[in-house]
Design a binder for these strands. Sequence first.
DNA 1: GGGTAACCGAGACGGTACGTCCCGTCTTGAA
DNA 2: TTCAAGACGGGACGTACCGTCTCGGTTACCC
Lengths: 195, 195, 195, 195
Amino acid sequence: MQTNELRRGPRMAQAIHDAALRLLVERGYDGLTIEGIASRSGVNKTTIYRWWPSKDAVLAAALTASDALALAIPDTGSLRGDLRALARRIAELVTDPATAPIAGALLAAGADRPQLAVVAREFFADRLLQERAMLDRASERGEVAAAVDPRSLMDLLAGAIWFRVFVRGEAPTEADLDAVVDTVLYGLDGRAEVG
Amino acid sequence: MQTNELRRGPRMAQAIHDAALRLLVERGYDGLTIEGIASRSGVNKTTIYRWWPSKDAVLAAALTASDALALAIPDTGSLRGDLRALARRIAELVTDPATAPIAGALLAAGADRPQLAVVAREFFADRLLQERAMLDRASERGEVAAAVDPRSLMDLLAGAIWFRVFVRGEAPTEADLDAVVDTVLYGLDGRAEVG
Amino acid sequence: MQTNELRRGPRMAQAIHDAALRLLVERGYDGLTIEGIASRSGVNKTTIYRWWPSKDAVLAAALTASDALALAIPDTGSLRGDLRALARRIAELVTDPATAPIAGALLAAGADRPQLAVVAREFFADRLLQERAMLDRASERGEVAAAVDPRSLMDLLAGAIWFRVFVRGEAPTEADLDAVVDTVLYGLDGRAEVG
Amino acid sequence: MQTNELRRGPRMAQAIHDAALRLLVERGYDGLTIEGIASRSGVNKTTIYRWWPSKDAVLAAALTASDALALAIPDTGSLRGDLRALARRIAELVTDPATAPIAGALLAAGADRPQLAVVAREFFADRLLQERAMLDRASERGEVAAAVDPRSLMDLLAGAIWFRVFVRGEAPTEADLDAVVDTVLYGLDGRAEVG
DNA sequence: GGGTAACCGAGACGGTACGTCCCGTCTTGAA
DNA sequence: TTCAAGACGGGACGTACCGTCTCGGTTACCC
């Protein structure tokens, strides 16, 4: 009955994570350094290296322990409503100065930073179950065929918003977001606008 | 007789650009250094600094002078055919080891690297005219409404492919690409698959 | 029955001392670290710090408890014989790979390492009584004046051998050693070579 | 006729050498660090590493370029006078707070610091020619046999003084030094004190 | 043979210096 | 005008070992 949890691990983890995310937001990924995290968190550099081998590893841990990028699945009663809410939330994450650097770092990780890319992959993979549920609700309501793949849906939705914001460098308006949702739902002609 | 262009600029520009792109492909964005470009191109480090203020500026110049990322607009006779061809070409660029690092660097530039982001923006902005033409052809054929915005269309197409490849870390099959195109054209249900 | 010495001190002292000396021999003074001693002796680092404040203190204790540098005073029947034997033993200590690092560390301690220097001083001071006795025997035999100071004698003998080995970096031959002894005994001309 | 010496090498060498020796004197060998030399000399750490691979290498260069340890060979007209002068000079070098740390570091180098040991060896080897000359003068004067080896002589003289100072930790008086010289010249009994 | 010192293991930490990489700058002289 | 060569200041890297602290567990002697 002795609950000897014997917990091991960094005592300063929280301070380190906080400092890492704050620095990422304030100075961008390139401005994020281990020494910066150390001085910001009041922790010695060696302590950070004791627990994580690189700045990406620290960042991965910080992101995993954080809910900065939480993306609740909405349930508005219609798929169109759900996707519009989702699109707004994605656009917000990717646009708000307080989260954009974090989202940007994570989305840009694919190319060159395997450690972060893993976090990104897991983050989006974990969400698929919920998105599946969202689609199931929609198909129960008869809004959509049962076979729709949540992965492809999210690729389109998230990809389009990301592309507009990060590649084109423009913040999408709500109308833009709605148009994206409608295109995904009904195709380019948006014939179902009546829906 | 007009050879006296009094051209200013580095004599070794070509060698420098080549070295920069080769290094980017071989070692990734982080492995790309000014000193590396210098030694690779047989040029002195100071020479590079004379002409470009940063590695991003060199890279921007190299990309601008290169056609590695050329993305010809297809004209297959149907919008569906055009988009399928386009999707395949995008997927190839983003997947082929010889171009993926370049595309990756450019697509990831938005967050933190203004110099590259400008190149990316210009690259995609320059294409809008051609994409506009592609859509005009389609609307003339009656395939689509005249009002369709090429920008949104490309956001969806390119964004979805990028997301699948760089964020999910999976290479899309041809069927995946076709499904994306069909969703964009006809909506999630793909009712128009017959089209 | 007086075993109740109430002895305080590290239980692992022997293992620690051994590890310290072995490491000193194998890796030299600079390669001797507290962490090295700890892992070598199977003792926790904190245990060492509990008992000694520095690596020099550990080393001093190890040397004091060791007989690696024992230098028995010979009694061959003649001063010349005694000194020759002594010279050989000194040369051996300072030359043999198994003891040279220890002797070297101790002899080099004077400059910068007070803790070791104390050990060295005590080590050589302790020997003066025996050397005094050696000289007394010689003067009883009429070989030398009674007033000869053992300290100066040993300074010359040990100093010359050390200088040859550690500064000049040469191992003295037996002839070299004999010549040193004769010079000390009879002067540079060695007029007493007949003796 | 163009004297293109094209001189290469550290521009800041002098400042670096000065700082190294000053730090050695003030803080001892262990207190001498590359970073200390850098900040003391106003030079960047990397500049030092560009030219020397270790603190011993810097120190060796500084010692070689310095005359702090200069040891002029006296010529007093008699060997006894010469040796007494030499002994005093050695004792001074090894005792004066301004030079003792330098001499100490050099003499202690044999054990563990090959780079410095080389400097020490060369320093003393270079002197042998002059010492040879001193002895030649003495043998011309009939004071000593021609065969006397300057190396052994200096081993005895320098070794005895070093041992007294660095191992026993005592500063020799002038009488002590004279006694050493006389012992070396005439043997333990010092029969020739009249000489 | 049970209690209480004395001793020890384990884990986490702040800290200094190391030696390295690459940055971006400057100066000089040659082509 | 352009370039090569060399030297430099500077920031951050990742590492080794230092010396310290706290906590909990283990001997071993003593009654």
